[in-house]
Write a protein that binds this DNA or RNA. Structure first.
Length: 427
RNA sequence: GGAGAGAUGGCUGAGUGGCCGAAAGCGCGCCCCUGCUAAGGGUGUAUAGGGCAACCUAUCGAGGGUUCGAAUCCCUCUCUCUCCGCCA
């Protein structure tokens, strides 16, 4: 969430930054526009309450002393009975006001970093660089390639669970596992990330810490009768590993990689990518997470993005890096680089990784702090990025490695994970 | 799922109604002494909010209650540990 202190001292500057996200973010009726009055009211009530509490504490002390020495304190006690009633009433009101303000703060998105390009939608995103040479020939869609090879089975997925689920068979399943292993090995061995294995279910507090709640509950799968949710990304459990902790400054940066399944309801994307594995309700992902000192957030973002890129390079998949504009970055993000892989069947680059810095936004929400130079706790900056989305990577491997005879060439880096095989072909 | 025990500051751990934001130890910061040494002495050290200085307020797992007053008593919930059951 945004910084409470800065909210009062730098209101105008924050509003200017937020307004870059687009229409509606700071307009009348928005969380932002309602927050100011709630803050004022909340602080006024608290001030009044503190005066009363101070009086109660003072006289209570006197009563204690009088009683201790055997003196009569009934006059003070009668007086305090009334004060206590007032405190109780005002305390409830003040708490309500504070909760209301806190809740509205949770609905205000992060401030885009100054370096984020202007723009309202993806059309304004800025391509930073390209890697590799996209093939230009006609390539079938991955669902045709995969079904012909007998390694992708969308019908079975639909039967078992519904649309947007799939089944992998044989070398398809093995390819999924190989990609997972290759990615984890690269990040753990070469890029300095400690591997962690975490729950795929998280509670409300954890979901709030990274920003999925309270605003995006409709995008999540919620367990019947329980305040638990399936995670949409490993970012949630891995970042929250440190919730409510004060870390030693020397322990930073903390870098974790994790494989998890991810679950998304895809509520707002009816009709989009209905075929194939591009947009599934359940998919696998290897995620990179970093906790760093705030001043290192941007340089860490470049590092983390490079780590994700290294996977695409190892797999010889052409891609480009895009600097998302202010209108296209996510709710919690301060700055985001998307990696888009070349999909020859569609002749376009498709998102395969999203690498973001959140500044101290999540650090404040999840209450993750470290001790700075002066010994005072400071909210950490957090980052994360897909390294990579495995399903989409599998799609890219199939399409980019497809050969006219229907077989698929396996990138060299992956071969050792597939028993030394160089191609996937019909048995 | 059943029975019992517990949840206190960066950590360990006292504290059963007022003088407790909390003893002691560890760790850490600063200062001092000393040279025969894997040390000694002093002092400081929770978090958040407000004034932004003195100081005030809140917080002893969370929420509610009793009381003039609660870390301490009562209720509910969560989590941890032990035993039993069950299970991959």
């Amino acid at each position: 969430m945004i910084d409470r202190k800065a909210f009062r001292t730098d209101f105008d500057a924050m509003q200017t930054a937020l307004s870059r996200r687009g229409e509606g973010v700071v307009d009348a009726g928005s969380a932002w526009s309602r927050a100011k009055a709630l803050d004022v009211r909340q602080r006024e009530l608290k001030g009044e309450l503190e005066v009363l509490q101070s009086e109660r504490n003072r006289v209570s002390k006197v009563i204690g002393q009088k009683k201790g020495s055997g003196a009569d304190a009934s006059e003070e006690m009668a007086l305090m009975g009334e004060v206590s009633r007032q405190v109780k009433g005002l305390d409830a009101t003040a708490k309500e006001a504070e909760t209301e303000f806190s809740n509205i703060l949770l609905e205000i998105p992060n401030l885009p970093h100054d370096s984020v390009p202007d723009g309202s939608d993806e059309a304004a995103n800025v391509e930073l660089r390209k890697w590799g040479t996209p093939r230009e020939d006609e390539v079938p869609a991955h669902w045709d390639i995969g079904e012909a090879l007998g390694i992708l089975d969308f019908e079975a997925g639909a039967t078992l669970a519904g649309s947007r689920f799939s089944v992998l068979r044989g070398m398809g399943a093995r390819l999924e596992r190989a990609l997972m292993q290759l990615m984890l090995d690269m990040h753990a061995d070469k890029h300095g990330y400690e591997e962690v294995w975490v729950p795929a279910i998280a509670n409300r507090k954890t979901m709030t810490g990274t920003g999925q709640l309270p605003k995006f509950e409709d995008d999540l799968y919620k367990l019947e009768g329980e305040e638990l949710f399936l995670i949409p990304t490993a970012e949630v459990p891995v970042t929250n590993l440190y919730q409510d902790q004060i870390l030693d400054g020397a322990a930073l940066p903390i870098k974790h990689c994790a494989y998890t399944p991810c679950f998304r309801r895809e509520a707002g994307s009816a009709g989009r990518d209905v075929r194939g594995m591009i947009r599934q309700h359940q998919f696998d992902k290897v995620e990179l997470v970093q906790l760093v000192q705030p001043e290192h957030a941007l340089s860490a973002l470049h590092d983390l993005t490079a780590h994700a890129e290294a996977v695409l390079q190892a797999l010889e998949l052409p891609y480009r890096v895009v600097d998302l504009c202010a209108g296209d970055i996510g709710f919690s993000a301060q700055k985001t680089f998307d990696l888009e892989v070349w999909l020859p069947s569609q002749g376009i680059y498709r998102e395969i990784s999203s690498c973001s810095s959140f500044g101290q936004f999540q650090g404040r929400r999840a209450n993750i702090r470290f001790r700075g130079e002066d010994g005072k706790p400071v909210a950490v900056a957090t980052l994360n990025g897909s390294g990579l989305a495995i399903g989409r990577t599998l799609v890219a491997v199939l399409e980019n490695g497809w050969q006219a005879d229907g077989s698929v060439k396996i990138p060299v880096a992956l071969q050792s994970y597939l028993g030394g095989r160089e191609i996937i072909a019909n048995a």
